[in-house]
Amino acid sequence: MKVIETIDLNVHYKEVHALKNVTMSMNKLSITALMGPSGCGKSTYLRALNRMNDLIEGCKVSGQVLIEGDNAYARDIHVDDLRKKVGMVFQKPNPFPMSIFENVAYGLRVNGVRDKKFIHEQVEKAIHQAALWDEVKDFLKKSAMDLSGGQQQRLCIARALVIEPSVLLMDEPTSALDPISSAKIEELMFDLKKNYTIVIVTHNIQQAARISDNTAFFYIGELIELGTTKEIFTNPKNERTQNYITGRFG
């Protein structure tokens, strides 16, 4: 089943045509890696899915983004409802300067949940899902700023999971982390795949090969090739894809 589908998606930043007629889809409970050199449009594509591009001045989007069949850019869709469905984890860990507990509870609170018991259960569950529980269970009241970078990033994942989105967007989630923390997050993604459809932007070709089911290669705003990760890495159809994954440019 297709959870995400984009049809002729175009994004302009003022005069720059950042994304050109991208048509692709992601299946339920899969991991899709978006790769390509800097400025290829992969992050722009990711941000188009939860409309974070709306925050960028002079950004114009045309074409369709369908999330579980609903057009994300339709007039009767509220952007905050969309973002509840489509969670996001950023490149740099960005926990709020609050306690560990409050960081995760935030998503529930802003979405109108008041029931204390329910909040506690959900927060605990989300921190478990993010494989962070054992490390923080005794310090839930401590500031999230005291955690290490890798722990902060997993906290940000817990924060995104607590409102139970169907899609999780990850924008180079390990590029600011050390190799051990990165490995933990990659491991975590395999578990998350059981419940979430994941789209991950990565600069790291090996990472894309290790974790994803499908891989999309972007180049200067265009989707050059999309296929199963195995196909892309063993038998790419396009020459530019081949050059990129073999390290001839990028």
């Binding site: 974070m52 905050d80 950023f90 960005n94 709020f96 998503g107 924060r159």
Partner: peptide
């Protein structure tokens, strides 16, 4: 961005 991305 983190807050807005959570539907706030």
């Amino acid at each position: 961005r983190a807050s807005l991305a959570l539907g706030a």
